[in-house]
């Protein structure tokens, strides 16, 4: 545990924790809106910002944030107007960002080695000033993602309805992409710009496997992101690799484990136990929807004989009386 005493390692772990928590939080809204790959595109765009900062000899973080936020708002306005058709415009913007960033970095005399600190993360490059900026921006992202959860959920689930309850839909949509841009840029030292999108999507998918409910899923994905980011950062110190790759590999490993776990939980949840003997019985049929009338001779539903009892044909499926309700047969 001697790494905990290293100051740069403490900074790196804090930065990783902030990324691990914020990336899935904003990612939940992107996934909900079927914009899973937006984070990837914004990462490419941020590379141009880093290149520009090299060339102008300024701090990479503010320049990258500026470029990325401007780009993300532009993309959202294009999407809203329906002009970003076929994704081609977005692809050009994103690859323009990546190639432009590499070009600018080259012109600035910085090799691809320096740039790779930002593309795949680098624990050593997190300065104290950076950490304060990361912490401040991360706090904003987390507070908005949690504090405006009902509003952001309503907008991403059903935009027309959100308008008719008076929500400022355009503002909230731009807020989501702006926060995504900030999250991507803030994450460039820990996960790196090329892999941050994975941390915005994979823990969300994992949480979807394990948890029911939007809010619960969002919180679970934040916890999963924190686990992946912290363990990846520590592991990369021992393995002497770029932290981004290990963080994402761990996140995907968690996703892979969640698959059979969710199956198992589903099966256990669905298993019925005979009250008398305590013996498990075969999974029974689903209980039918609530009923306004009692099936009988005059209800208008066709009765059929089924394994010794009467079922009633109800909208193409069969109802069988069971206690105070009907089972689906």
């Amino acid at each position: 545990m001697e790494w905990l005493a290293l100051e740069f390692m403490q900074r790196a772990l804090l930065a990783a924790l902030i990324t691990g928590v914020t990336a899935p939080a904003i990612g939940t809204y992107l996934v909900q809106r079927r914009l899973s790959l937006l984070g990837d595109g914004l990462g490419h765009l941020a590379v141009a910002g880093v290149g520009l900062a090299f060339l102008t000899n300024t701090a990479p973080l503010p320049v990258a944030i500026l470029v990325c936020v401007i780009g993300s708002v532009g993309i959202e306005l294009l999407r809203e107007s329906g002009r970003a058709s076929g994704d081609v415009g977005l692809a050009i913007l994103f690859y323009g960002g990546l190639s432009g960033g590499l070009l600018l970095a080259g012109l600035a005399g910085q090799g691809s080695g320096t740039l790779s600190n930002y593309l795949f993360g680098s624990l050593l490059t997190v300065t104290t000033a950076d950490l304060w900026a990361i912490a401040g921006l991360g706090a904003i992202v987390a507070v908005v993602c949690l504090g405006l959860l009902p509003q952001l959920f309503a907008v991403s689930a059903d935009e027309p309805f959100a308008r008719t309850i008076g929500l400022r839909v355009r503002f909230l949509n731009i807020l989501v992409v702006t926060l995504a841009a900030i999250t991507v840029t803030v994450s460039m030292r820990t996960v790196g710009l090329l892999l941050v999108s994975a941390l915005m999507v994979v823990p969300v998918a994992t949480a979807n496997h394990l948890i029911t409910g939007f809010r619960a899923g969002l919180l679970a994905s934040m916890a999963l992101g924190a686990v992946a980011a912290l363990s990846g950062a520590v592991g990369s110190y021992y393995l002497d690799t770029a932290p981004g790759s290990l963080i994402v590999v761990i996140a995907i490993a968690l996703f892979a484990v969640s698959w059979p776990l969710s199956r198992l939980a589903e099966r256990r949840h669905g298993r019925l136990v005979d009250v008398g003997s305590g013996e498990p019985v075969a999974p029974g049929p689903e209980v039918a929807e609530a009923h306004p009338h009692v099936h009988g001779e005059n209800c208008g539903h066709r009765p059929v004989l089924h394994a010794g009892h009467l079922d009633y044909v109800h909208d193409g499926h069969r109802h069988a009386a069971h206690g105070d309700h009907y089972d689906e047969h």
Binding site: P150, F153, D158, E159, P160, F161, T164
Partner: peptide, 29 residues
């Protein structure tokens, strides 16, 4: 807008893991 209760056509809804209650809760916003 609290005076208006709109029910859109069902096909427009995009929810992944949200519960029925969470969808209904949007009506209070």
């Amino acid at each position: 807008w609290r005076r208006v209760g709109y029910v859109p056509q069902r096909s427009g809804i995009l929810v992944q893991q949200a519960t029925a209650r969470e969808v209904v809760a949007s009506g209070r916003l």
